[in-house]
């Protein structure tokens, strides 16, 4: 019984990280993905902030799922999400103002990140709190990994550093395009290419296997 439950929880968790990865598979939440991933540290902070909002609001939505009237559910979700976003906003200001300036309006914009509302509507509203929060953690982790994948590439090429540490020494030639918006599109496109190429190869392998 316990093993079954654990296995199910594990599946719930892994769904967000791999099978339904919000960035690479579902291609959701592109606005912060493209905008704040100029450095790895920004990407991680953004990912963690979103993860916190995701877990907390999914938990609360799930707890209130039985008493939320269907007609006003979206309003309730938005209020709940906005609350936690405000809390995160204050927390980041308290932790570091530099980070707050770097992330800019994208912290407040977590409110309209479709991953969160999507999770609340599609998962949390139909599952008990533990399952909802496990799933939300997985999704948040998947989102963070996605942002980090972009942030690492863009920081290395655009600045020659990783987490602020210089990798190539003095004479590094920064690729200016990587810290500009087009660089975000290029890197995201390359990652999506890699993922879909993998998926297609797997399909082809399975097809030959069955034949």
């Amino acid at each position: 019984m316990t093993t079954v439950a654990t296995a199910k929880n594990w599946d719930e968790f892994m769904e967000g990280i791999w099978k339904q990865n919000p960035v690479f598979v579902m291609v959701l939440g592109m606005c912060p993905t493209l905008a704040v991933t100029v450095s790895a540290i920004n990407a991680i902070s953004m990912g963690l902030a979103t993860t916190f909002v995701l877990i907390a609001s999914c938990g609360l939505v799930s707890m209130m799922r039985n008493i939320t009237p269907k007609e006003v559910r979206i309003a309730v979700y938005i209020v709940i999400i906005a609350t936690f976003v405000t809390a995160v906003d204050y927390a980041i200001q308290a932790i570091s103002l530099t980070l707050y300036d770097a992330l800019g309006a994208f912290i407040q914009l977590i409110v309209v990140n479709c991953i969160i509302l999507g999770r609340a509507e599609a998962h949390a509203a139909r599952n008990p709190p533990v399952a909802a929060m496990t799933n939300a953690t997985g999704m948040g982790a998947g989102f963070t990994i996605g942002l980090l994948a972009l942030g690492v590439v863009r920081e290395i090429l655009g600045n020659g550093t990783l987490f602020g540490l210089s990798l190539f020494g003095e004479g590094f030639q920064p690729w200016v395009i990587m810290v500009l918006p087009p660089g975000g599109f290029f890197v995201l496109g390359s990652w999506l290419l890699l993922f879909s190429w993998r998926a297609r190869r797997k399909q082809a392998l399975e097809a030959t296997h069955h034949a």
Binding site: Q173, W175, V176, I177, M178, L180, P182
Partner: peptide
């Protein structure tokens, strides 16, 4: 266009 955006000085 890519290298112009990436390496504007060079």
């Amino acid at each position: 266009a890519f290298v112009q955006a990436a390496f504007p000085t060079a």
